[in-house]
């Protein structure tokens, strides 16, 4: 019986050497495991930088307003920074929560619903966050000047 894996599996000849069963599920979990670790290292730098600039420098959280965001996002460096942070944190976090759902939601239906909601939240937040970074106008024409960054009036 040289052909047909099912037949081979059923009647192994006594002398046949051990053959590792070929996995049929792909390497998704392996890649996701590697991704959690790789993204974690990058996120550490991105998030610590984000928190330092927004909470520690100057007046910290009190300095944040529309003009503050305008100042940051008129610099491509911070746009790329925030974009990377958004995508990596959302993929890392969503994948982590997926693992947790798999661990605790034992009924197929419950698990399906929870993962559906998770995917929905992921999509909405990533699309919205990406659009916000790239369609942002630091000097909207109809806004009161005192709310805008100083470079808008200059």
């Amino acid at each position: 019986m040289a052909h047909g894996t099912a037949a081979v599996a059923k009647v192994d000849s006594p002398r046949s050497p051990y053959v590792r069963r070929k996995t049929t599920r792909g390497n998704y979990e392996l890649y996701s495991w590697v991704f959690m670790r790789a993204s974690g290292v990058v996120l550490l730098v991105l998030i610590f930088g984000h928190l330092f600039v927004n909470l520690m420098v100057g007046d910290g959280v009190h300095a944040i307003d529309f003009g503050f965001v305008a100042g940051k996002w008129s610099n491509p460096m911070w746009q790329v920074w925030d974009l990377l942070m958004l995508w990596l944190a959302m993929i890392h976090g969503t994948n982590g929560v997926r693992t947790i759902i798999n661990d605790y939601a034992t009924r197929d239906l419950t698990r399906g619903i929870l993962k559906g909601l998770l995917l929905l939240a992921f999509t909405v937040v990533v699309v919205l966050g990406t659009l916000v970074i790239f369609t942002f106008d630091p000097c909207p024409p109809d806004a009161p000047a005192e709310l805008l960054a100083s470079f808008c009036t200059a």
Binding site: P140, A143, P144
Partner: peptide, 9 residues
Amino acid sequence: TALVRVSPE
């Protein structure tokens, strides 16, 4: 953060 696209206010 998306509120920056609504208005500064």
